[in-house]
């Protein structure tokens, strides 16, 4: 599904440069649910951004679904992102002047679907996250958990191969966090490959595999017994 080898990334800071990722090797199979953990500055978000093609790697190889991701120009990156990836952000990143269904339909717009089809699909995904009654509501009329569920529906709408979540529960209270995790686990049960960046141990425990980063290298990479979120809800 995803294969990264000898990945390096550094950011220029003034005259010197900050070496953030120092040779990462990681491969994720289809259907996995992986938590990427690490303290702040460990490079976990950078890794996710490179996987998400929001950032470019300096050195190394990255193959996604048998497609080598090289020489990314903006246009190519846009097509790959649209085709392969679904994003879930800590701060939801919904477009505030679009209502829930329009937000969910947005990736479909960029895939070139007709308006009617878009809205049908969007409504389907909204109902999947249990928000079909809220389709016409603007983001600021929704609670944090609802916003994140709209964001998940949006990430799913384009039917991505890989779901990338950057601290998906970071802005939510514990109860809502568990609801969201329960939902992500359900998606994983249905076969979606999910990558979650988090610094919360209990969230990481709800995944099937934990990758720990420290100072730009992988410290630990282990499979764990998944804690089901449903038992807390």
């Amino acid at each position: 599904m995803l294969k990264i080898s000898k990945l390096h990334k550094s950011y220029p800071i003034g005259d010197s440069s900050l070496h953030v990722l120092k040779g990462i090797d990681l491969s994720v199979d289809s259907g996995e649910m992986v938590a990427i953990m690490g303290s702040s500055g460990s490079g976990k978000s950078t890794l996710l951004n490179i996987i998400g093609m929001l950032d470019e790697l300096d050195k190394g190889e990255y193959v996604l679904d048998n497609v080598p991701i090289v020489d990314l120009n903006e246009k190519k990156a846009a097509i790959y992102r649209n085709k392969f990836l679904g994003f879930i952000f800590q701060s939801f990143n919904l477009i505030n002047y679009k209502n829930a269904i329009e937000n969910v339909a947005l990736p479909l717009y960029y895939q070139g679907f007709k308006r009617k089809e878009r809205l049908e699909k969007a409504l389907f995904h909204l109902s999947k996250v249990g928000l079909s009654d809220w389709a016409k509501h603007l983001p600021n009329e929704l609670s944090g958990g609802q916003k994140q569920r709209v964001a998940i529906a949006r990430a799913l709408a384009a039917d991505p191969k890989l779901l990338l979540a950057d601290e998906p529960t970071g802005a939510l209270d514990t109860k809502t966090s568990h609801e969201i995790m329960e939902f992500l686990q359900q998606l994983n049960d249905e076969g979606k490959t999910i990558l979650i960046v988090t610094h919360e141990e209990d969230i990481a425990d709800m995944c099937k595999r934990i990758v720990r980063l420290k100072d730009g290298v992988i410290m630990e990479d282990k499979f764990v017994t998944q804690v089901r979120a449903s038992q807390y809800v």
Binding site: A78, N93, P107, Q111
Partner: peptide, 16 residues
Amino acid sequence: TKEIGVRKALGASPKS
């Protein structure tokens, strides 16, 4: 900026 970033993350081409 943020909205444009989101759109790009969702697959908006520079042209659009």
